[in-house]
């Protein structure tokens, strides 16, 4: 019963973070701020959902045994690591490409242009 509540907490946090990320993508004014919402909230939401899955798998393994639950948990862990790294790197690539495509950020200060013409 305790693990059930733990799973529910992880899933709820993850889904709330994903929802806020989607709202941020719709609401923020330009590409860079949208990337903030997408990267941080999306990655954190998916990590929390993966942790919920791992908690479920561990509880099943403890009550039931059987290596297939261990395999499921291990692969979920691999998926979590892959998601965390690829999301951050993809966001970096997109922001660099957006700057190279000539989209200027809205904002108070912009220190990048002095190196761009090389």
């Amino acid at each position: 019963m305790d693990t059930g509540i733990l799973i529910l907490i992880f899933l709820t946090i993850g889904l709330v973070a994903c929802t806020l990320g989607a709202v941020g993508i719709l609401r923020f004014p330009d590409v860079y701020t949208r990337l903030h919402a997408e990267t941080k909230l999306g990655t954190f939401g998916s990590i929390c959902i993966c942790l919920g899955v791992i908690a479920y798998v561990l509880s099943e393994y403890l009550t039931d045994g059987g290596t297939r639950y261990l395999v499921l948990g291990l692969h979920t862990l691999m998926a979590m690591i892959a998601l965390a790294f690829t999301n951050a790197l993809g966001a970096h690539a997109i922001s660099r490409a957006a700057y190279r495509a000539g989209i200027k950020p809205e904002g108070v200060v912009d220190r990048l242009p002095e190196v761009e013409q090389k």
Partner: peptide, 24 residues
């Protein structure tokens, strides 16, 4: 830091107060 980042960006999403910029 990731958890702090999420609280921070969530507040920004809800209130809409941002002043973005690029620094070195």
């Amino acid at each position: 830091e990731i958890i702090r980042a999420n609280v921070y960006v969530s507040i920004s999403v809800i209130t809409g107060n941002i002043r973005p910029g690029i620094v070195k």
